[in-house]
């Protein structure tokens, strides 16, 4: 473990908590893409199938459980408890256009052609594009609540910090996982224009409005 990955994980956890609290406190999921949340739940489910068979550390197991429970909890709040506030008219990204190519690619490019490894690879590729429905929804509505932009900043920062972690691990222990690195770079690049807007607008107290 290194500080970059630890801060990255905490940033990821913070993002998930911010979103959960936003929905729970305001009793509304306006402006939040339920499709992205479904994809994130799918990412965690397919990635953590080894939760009970491959013990790494208490921290690792506890975080996996927290991610699984909170992401499924968010999907539950959005599609059941606060379904009336779910903005399905703007959450229209066709996620089959993500799941199918990602599924195909995970069969073609992976570390090992075994079910567990292919599902892990699927999870890594899917995570890199899972935010697209959310970014698409914001581009359609043209704006995002400030709390939602904080969520996105924390979520985008997590994988950016993981890239620093991979550089660090390459130079200190010679470890590198090309699949995770390439997918992580794609994932972080997708946030670039949001990061620009967040830093130039939200941090100056303005609301996040995308140029129409």
């Amino acid at each position: 473990m290194n500080v970059f990955r630890l801060v990255g994980d905490l940033s990821h956890l913070l993002a998930i908590i911010i979103l959960l609290l936003k929905i729970w406190k305001t009793r509304s999921c306006a402006g939040v893409s339920g499709k992205s949340q479904i994809l994130f739940s799918l990412v965690f489910i397919t990635r953590y199938l080894d939760l009970f068979t491959n013990f790494i550390s208490v921290y690792n197991s506890v975080m996996k459980i927290i991610y699984l429970v909170t992401s499924l909890g968010t999907v539950y709040l959005m599609y059941f408890k606060f379904k009336a506030t779910y903005d399905s008219n703007h959450d229209t990204f066709r996620i089959e256009f993500l799941v199918v190519p990602v599924g195909g690619l995970s069969f073609l490019v992976n570390h090992d052609f075994t079910p567990l490894e292919i599902l892990w690879t699927f999870s890594i590729y899917l995570e890199s594009v899972a935010i697209l429905p959310q970014l698409f929804m914001i581009s359609k509505t043209g704006e995002a609540e400030t709390i939602t932009s904080h969520y996105l900043f924390a979520l985008g920062s997590y994988r950016a910090l993981y890239i620093v972690n991979w550089v660090y691990r390459y130079y200190t222990e010679g470890f590198f996982d090309l699949i995770a690195i390439v997918a992580g770079c794609v994932q972080t690049i997708l946030y670039c224009d949001f990061f620009y807007l967040y830093i130039t607008k939200v941090l100056k107290g303005k609301q996040l409005k995308l140029p129409a």
Binding site: D9, H12, I56, N60, M63, N110, H111, F113, E117, W120
Partner: peptide, 10 residues
């Protein structure tokens, strides 16, 4: 197939 790596990250 790429070199198998240990899965110790989240």
């Amino acid at each position: 197939k790429l070199a198998a790596v240990k899965k110790d990250e989240l």
